[in-house]
Simulated assay, not measured.
Amino acid sequence: MIWDTADTAFAENLAAARAYYAEAGTLAAPRHATALDKPVGQWLTNLRRPGGLGKDPKRTARRAEQLAAIDPDWNPGGLGWTVDWQRHYTGLRVLLAAGGTLDEILPGVTYRGDDIGRWLARQVRDWTRLNTEQQHRLGEVGVKPAVRPQKTAARVSAKAGAAKGSDAFQRGVAALAQYIQREEKTVVGRGHVEELPDGTPVRLGVFLSNHKSRRDRLTEQQLAALAALGYDWAS
């Protein structure tokens, strides 16, 4: 007798997740991934969305523990980076464990269809855009930032511009979180303006549209923040 069909379905998908992890070494599966004839990639994507583990706190905690027992990093958004970053990082570790060296992992070197060499070159180039934990994890396997010439004036100007842009992004994310919590949906009208508690107006529809069209220019942390709010295009 099946007492709870939701838990039964979760258990079946969890078994598929274990099978996928045994093969890939990570639960950072692309959405199209399958295992044991289950759409495990889409299932994991759904779980990472706000409320994806269910509304009951005890059930949510139990499910999170079960997933963490398979892969502690099953939900990279909570760590400040994307599923895509986690999957490529896992690929890098696998290639190195198999005897490869960082000098050999050049653009075009792949793992399970992902171009790890191209990704690695981007991490080295954009080191300062990574958070501390990302830098630590890459440092553990020998990755170091690219050495760049000193350009004091340009660097100060760039930092000032980045700080201004970061503040605007944080306001946008705060407004999005407020909107989603109130409206219980992620779709925002183009002309919608959300007012923050301090009275600051945020053109939320424009903010979301602009960042979606420029997602390739966002940092891993910014993508992770948007993905954590339920926007799949940022994953």
Score class of each variant (00 low, 15 high):
Lys151Arg: 15
Gly230Phe: 05
Lys58Ala: 15
Arg171Pro: 02
Val206Tyr: 04
Glu140Tyr: 08
Gly99Phe: 05
Val141Trp: 11
Asp37His: 12
Ala28Glu: 00
Thr34Lys: 04
Leu204Asp: 06
Ala228His: 12
Glu183Trp: 03
Ala17Gly: 03
Phe10Gly: 05
Thr45Cys: 08
Ala69Thr: 13
Pro72Gly: 14
Ala28Gly: 01
Gln222Met: 11
Glu23His: 07
Ala228Ile: 08
Thr26Tyr: 05
Gly189Ala: 11
Ala68His: 13
Leu44Glu: 03
Leu44Ser: 03
Leu44Asn: 01
Leu96Ser: 11
Thr200Glu: 09
Tyr179Ile: 00
His192Gly: 01
Tyr20Leu: 02
Ala16Ile: 01
Ala69Tyr: 08
Lys144Met: 10
Gln134Arg: 04
Ile116Tyr: 06
Ala69Trp: 11
Thr26Cys: 01
Arg31Met: 02
Ala227Phe: 11
His88Lys: 15
Gly165Ile: 04
Gly172Cys: 01
Asp115Lys: 08
His32Thr: 01
Lys151Pro: 02
Trp127Ile: 10
Lys159Tyr: 11
Gly191His: 15
Thr128His: 12
Asp7Ala: 12
His88Ala: 12
Arg62Val: 01
His88Cys: 12
Asp232Met: 05
Pro149His: 12
Asp115Thr: 05
Asp37Phe: 06
Arg137Thr: 02
Trp43Ile: 05
Asp7Val: 02
Pro76Gln: 09
Leu138Trp: 12
Ala35Trp: 01
Val141Met: 07
Ala68Cys: 08
Gly172Leu: 03
Ala121Cys: 11
Pro72Thr: 08
Arg125Cys: 10
Leu176Lys: 08
Arg203Asn: 12
Gln222Asp: 06
Gln178Gly: 07
Ala11Ile: 01
Asp114Pro: 00
Glu23Cys: 00
Pro57Cys: 10
Ala28Pro: 00
Ile2Trp: 12
Val156Gln: 14
Tyr111Trp: 15
Asp167Ser: 12
Leu36His: 03
Phe10Leu: 07
